Simulated scan of single mutants.
Amino acid sequence: MNTPQTAGGQDAGLIQLIDPDGRRAPHEEFDPWITDVDAGVLGRLYTDMVAIRRIDQEGTALQRQGELALWPPLLGQEAAQIGAGRALEDDDFIFPSYRETGLAYCRGVEAEDILRVWRGNAYSGWNPFGKNMATPQIIIGAQTLHAAGYAMGIKYDGGSQAAITFFGDGATSQGDVNEAMVFAASYQAPVVFFCQNNHWAISEPVQLQSNTHIADRPVGFGIPSLRVDGNDVLACLAATRIALDRARTGNGPTFIEAVTYRMGPHTTADDPTRYRDANELDLWAAKDPIERIEKHLDGLGVDTAELKATATAVADAVAGKLRKAIIGLEDPDPMDVFENVYSQPHATLERQREHYALYQQQFAEAGSATEGGAR
């Protein structure tokens, strides 16, 4: 029987291919799925993680400077997102929560398009069907139902692609996630449930939500699960490839629990020092996902100084473009709120549009009257 999960600890059941000191451990099941991953591929994964950490840091800085209304940091979760993101095919469809900056980066979404919604300039920054990635879901766990339904559609259409959905440990306590697993298992839908267990559902620790590992839960629905070190990009890559292959070959859903840690606040409106022990933070800082790949590459004889310089240059370019674009965004027209609500004409929406236009016109007329009186 699995023992309850403890913050900062590691149990024997956790699959890990690269440990925090950069040492590679062989694994009979996972190794065949990563035979193509050489030092060059690892270097690109490293660069990806450095880039999204920089985007994340820029997002936090922009919020603190009043340029964004809110920002949900991903600090510490880079390996889980990049490992999973780089395992996907272009026609696989992603259903994310609000923290999947790394997945959007892998899909080629411009950094400013990731952030514009947090500035309040748009409902979302990209066309979901242009990137095969849904817009960020704020309602906890709702995206899992969307993913299960989309995957059922793939199956009925005879498609070969897969759907994948991302959520945190807290979402597994939501009815939506459990209902999605019921449908996925019942219809053997080609969907991957990817849980980033970052140990905290806002201020509630994972131990309070589950007396056993989260990866044990889907087994009750008839869904096989994998439990991996979420700070190990190689393990996350292999696990996602295994799960996607199961989905594409008609073997139904898989659940992945990537055990990681949220190093920052839940959002920039949160103060984790009020509920989190600083010692716990130190324990997980020693397991940093970027540093361990750097150590591993150094052990392989790679010029890590050159790699770091290249990765930093990529990150700097992304951050510079992002900041310039965000600060230069123009506010939308008030009437734009009615755009892209329904795909077809909708009488109620049109009536609301007319009423709101009349409401806006009152301000314009009042302004004109004031100017006339001043003259």
Rank of each mutant, 00 (worst) to 15 (best):
S210P: 07
S210Y: 13
N211P: 12
T212M: 15
T212H: 14
T212G: 15
H213L: 15
H213I: 09
I214H: 08
I214A: 09
A215I: 05
A215Q: 08
A215R: 02
A215C: 11
D216L: 14
D216N: 15
D216M: 11
D216H: 13
R217C: 07
R217Y: 13
R217D: 02
R217P: 06
R217Q: 14
R217T: 09
P218H: 12
P218C: 09
P218K: 12
P218I: 10
P218R: 13
V219M: 15
G220V: 11
G220W: 13
G220N: 11
G220P: 07
F221I: 00
F221N: 01
F221H: 06
F221R: 00
F221L: 00
G222I: 05
G222D: 07
G222H: 10
I223E: 05
I223N: 11
I223W: 03
P224H: 08
P224F: 07
S225D: 02
S225I: 06
S225N: 11
L226H: 00
L226G: 01
L226R: 02
R227I: 03
V228F: 09
V228D: 02
D229W: 07
D229V: 12
D229G: 10
G230Y: 06
G230L: 08
N231W: 08
N231T: 11
N231R: 13
D232W: 11
D232N: 09
D232V: 04
D232K: 08
D232R: 09
V233T: 00
V233Y: 00
V233R: 00
V233P: 00
V233F: 01
L234T: 03
L234H: 05
A235Y: 06
C236P: 08
C236G: 11
L237C: 12
L237E: 04
L237S: 01
L237F: 12
L237D: 06
L237V: 05
A238E: 03
A238P: 05
A238V: 05
A239T: 01
T240W: 04
T240K: 02
T240E: 02
T240M: 03
T240N: 01
T240V: 02
R241H: 00
I242V: 14
I242C: 07
A243C: 06
A243G: 08
D245N: 15
D245Q: 14
R246S: 08
R246W: 03
R246P: 03
A247P: 07
A247Q: 04
A247N: 01
R248Q: 06
R248F: 12
R248V: 08
T249K: 15
T249N: 15
N251S: 14
N251H: 15
N251R: 15
G252D: 02
G252N: 02
G252F: 05
G252T: 01
G252Q: 03
P253M: 02
P253G: 04
P253I: 08
P253T: 08
P253V: 05
T254E: 01
T254S: 13
T254Y: 03
T254D: 01
F255K: 04
